[in-house]
Amino acid sequence: MEDFAKLKEAIIKKIIDGGHDSFLCTLNSDTIKSIYGAKRLENTIAEWSAELIKINGVVILIYFSEKDFAPPIHLASTYFKLEKIGESMILFGENPKTKIYAVKPDSSRGYLVTHLIPIE
């Protein structure tokens, strides 16, 4: 948590100095696992998420089907899943429930655009 204390202090300073009310933070389970180890993964993510939310942060957790890890869904106000089925990527909301969408990347304009195609 010492690393997190430094991060939290830096975030608070940026928020105050920049006159912002909130911020966006992305947590990646693979990165946290490589730094803190598999045994501390779940607790580290839960603790960091809870602390970031307390200081008005919006947390996006990216995780990749960790075998022994249950994401802290109870902390989520919104929860989306992105899964690969066969060769297709699909996106759907668990909270709130949404339709299922196929994710179609398009780089024909020289930059990446993502299209969501509803699956009926």
Rank of each mutant, 00 (worst) to 15 (best):
T78A: 13
A102S: 11
L75K: 09
I32C: 08
L41C: 09
I119H: 01
G18Y: 05
S107R: 12
K104S: 11
E42D: 05
A46K: 15
D21F: 08
E94I: 15
I12T: 09
T26A: 10
S77E: 12
I85W: 03
D30I: 09
C25Y: 05
E47A: 09
K81S: 12
S34Y: 10
T31S: 14
K84N: 05
T98I: 04
F80V: 07
V103H: 03
A50P: 00
D17I: 00
P105L: 07
E2T: 08
Y111W: 13
G37I: 07
A70K: 12
A38Y: 06
P105A: 09
P118F: 07
T44E: 12
Y36A: 12
T114N: 03
A46E: 13
I55L: 10
E2W: 02
N43M: 06
Y79R: 01
I60E: 09
T44G: 03
T26H: 03
E94F: 11
S22T: 14
H20T: 02
V58E: 04
I12Y: 01
S65R: 14
V113H: 02
K104M: 11
K39S: 14
T114H: 04
G110T: 06
K39N: 11
H20S: 04
I55A: 02
S49T: 15
S77P: 00
I45P: 05
I35T: 11
V58T: 14
D68W: 10
V58P: 00
Y111M: 08
S107C: 05
M1W: 01
I100H: 02
R109M: 06
T114A: 02
R40A: 13
T98C: 09
K97F: 09
F80I: 07
T31D: 13
L116D: 02
K33N: 14
P71D: 09
E51N: 13
H115Y: 11
L27G: 03
P71E: 05
P71T: 09
A46M: 09
P105C: 11
F92H: 15
I90A: 05
L61E: 11
L112T: 12
K13C: 00
V113Y: 00
G110Y: 04
I62A: 10
D17Y: 02
S107F: 10
I16G: 00
A46Q: 08
V113P: 00
L41N: 08
G57I: 06
K6G: 04
P118Q: 10
L116S: 05
I15G: 01
S34R: 14
D3F: 07
A38I: 08
K99V: 06
T98G: 05
F23V: 05
L41E: 07
I55R: 02
D17F: 00
Y79F: 13
G93D: 06
Y101A: 03
I32L: 15
P105I: 07
I45N: 05
T114P: 01
I11N: 01
G18R: 05
K8N: 03
G37Y: 10
P96I: 12
D30G: 04
R109K: 12
S34H: 13
A38N: 08
M1F: 02
V113T: 06
E87Q: 12
S34A: 13
T114D: 00
